[in-house]
Computed example of a mutant assay.
Amino acid sequence: MAIVGYARVSSTGQSLDVQLDKLKYYQCDKIYQEKKSGITANRPELKKCLDYVREGDVLIITKLDRLARSTVDLHNILQQLNDKGVGFRVIDQSIDTTTSTGKLLFGILASIAEFETELRKERQMEGIKKAKNNGVAFGRKAKLTDIQIEELRYKRSNGVLIKDLMANYGLSKASVYRLLSIT
């Protein structure tokens, strides 16, 4: 029987230290870790972890939202673990799915985690909409001023090669063509 840990943070700027400390405290034999969004299905370390665990092993995580962000995904992972005869524990929420109470708690907390994610998305979209209404510009700052764009067009109309325009203005070929096509 092996105790296997899984730790995840959403972005490269975040630290795994707190999760790793907790998993080490629970004496995990092996710990998989990654810095990937829980929303994406492309989590190679989670896949390796789920492939690694065997009957009688226990998978431990610190919080439910570290494993996945949707209830469907959480239930699918739990079903995969159940099919393999692998126990599942969540440290911070005191969940142990080898018990009926643990299974109930898992379902409730999985639904709450998904609800919180949806609320966060709604607040983010409201904030973006408000910022746009207040004139905040999103996206990368333009590399060229309007005067430089007119100059670029003038040079091109006088036969300057695209590659030379790219070099002179520090732009990609696609950017030069895009700026030439804008009326």
Results as ranks from 00 to 15, higher is better:
Ala2Glu: 12
Val4Tyr: 02
Arg8Ile: 00
Gly13Phe: 02
Gln14Cys: 08
Asp17Phe: 01
Gln19His: 11
Asp21Glu: 15
Lys24Cys: 10
Tyr25Gln: 15
Gln27Ala: 13
Asp29Lys: 06
Asp29Gly: 07
Asp29Cys: 04
Lys30Arg: 13
Gln33Asp: 09
Asn42Phe: 05
Asn42Lys: 12
Glu45Leu: 10
Lys48Pro: 08
Asp51His: 14
Tyr52Met: 07
Arg54Lys: 15
Glu55Asp: 13
Gly56Gln: 07
Val58Ala: 08
Val58Tyr: 10
Lys63Gly: 09
Leu64Met: 13
Asp65Asn: 02
Arg66Leu: 07
Arg66Asn: 07
Leu67Gly: 03
Ile77Glu: 06
Ile77Ala: 04
Leu78Trp: 11
Leu78Asn: 10
Leu81Ser: 05
Asp83Gln: 15
Asp83Trp: 03
Lys84Gln: 09
Gly85Lys: 09
Asp92Ser: 15
Gln93Val: 05
Thr101Cys: 03
Thr101Asp: 10
Leu104Arg: 02
Leu105Met: 14
Ser111Phe: 02
Ala113Gln: 01
Thr117Ile: 12
Arg123Thr: 05
Gln124Asp: 03
Lys129Thr: 11
Lys130Pro: 01
Lys132Ala: 06
Asn133His: 08
Val136His: 02
Arg140Ser: 03
Lys143Tyr: 11
Ile147Asn: 12
Leu152Gly: 08
Arg153Glu: 05
Tyr154Phe: 13
Tyr154Trp: 06
Val160Gln: 15
Tyr177Gly: 01
Ile182Gln: 14
Thr183Leu: 11
